[in-house]
């Protein structure tokens, strides 16, 4: 009974209040950094797994006989790091898959963009995002057909100026009440095609002659 009495007297004092805040924040930081350290590995592994699965979905079946998941090199698009996966058949590159990211409504959207040798999109999948359910999450293939609209397009179909959502004068649908998310994804796919056009020869040369 004596302890609550002491507490009662201590609680209104400024040093106690400052200490309470400091201890709370310290414990919270410790818990977070502990958890971060222990979850980072499994999270990265789970995302890598998701990405690997998506790679198969954006490449035409039978267009490769290697493992594009491990046939990879690092590139940069401005300040966005891009991982380039190369699909080959009998050693000859047939397509690439770019693992890239865009800034959505709330946080980063990770996506993979499959591009064949002619610079045509073979498929797009969102691998991770934190957009609002019911608004921005229609970019997920599980929730809407929207992402299929990219397949078969290239930088001349539509013309570069039309590579945008309809609200911005382009050809791609936005969602009811959510323009920011689809705008971000359309932009990322367009930038991927441009990156491919600029750099694919260097990518293929780099790996063709190991």
């Amino acid at each position: 009974m004596s302890e609550p009495m002491t507490l009662e007297r201590l609680r209104p004092t400024i040093p106690y209040q400052a200490a309470a805040l400091a201890v709370t924040v310290m414990l919270a930081s410790a818990a977070l950094s502990f958890a971060e350290r222990h979850t980072r590995g499994p999270i990265e592994q789970a995302i890598a797994e998701d990405t690997r699965r998506s790679l198969g979905e954006v490449l035409p079946q039978g267009s490769y006989d290697n493992d594009p998941g491990s046939d990879r090199l690092d590139a940069r698009d401005g300040n966005v790091p891009v991982v380039v996966h190369i699909a080959r058949k009998a050693g000859v590159p047939t397509a690439v898959v770019l693992e890239t990211a865009a800034k959505g409504y709330s946080g980063e959207i990770g996506l993979v963009v499959g591009i064949d040798r002619e610079g045509r999109v073979t498929g797009v999948r969102i691998t991770r995002h934190t957009e609002t359910p019911g608004l921005g999450d229609k970019v997920e293939v599980a929730k809407s057909e929207w992402v299929h609209d990219f397949a078969g397009r290239d930088l001349s179909n539509p013309a570069p100026a039309k590579w945008a959502v309809k609200k911005d004068g382009g050809v791609f649908d936005q969602f009811a009440g959510a323009t920011i998310t689809p705008r971000a994804v359309v932009g990322a796919v367009k930038r991927s095609l441009e990156l491919y056009r600029r750099e694919h020869e260097a990518w293929f040369a780099r790996r063709d002659a190991p």
């Binding site: 971060e36 222990h38 979850t39 499994p42 999270i43 789970a46 998701d50």
Partner: peptide, 8 residues
């Protein structure tokens, strides 16, 4: 973090 890591 926990869900993301262990119940992906």
């Amino acid at each position: 973090m926990a869900l993301n890591a262990w119940l992906h």
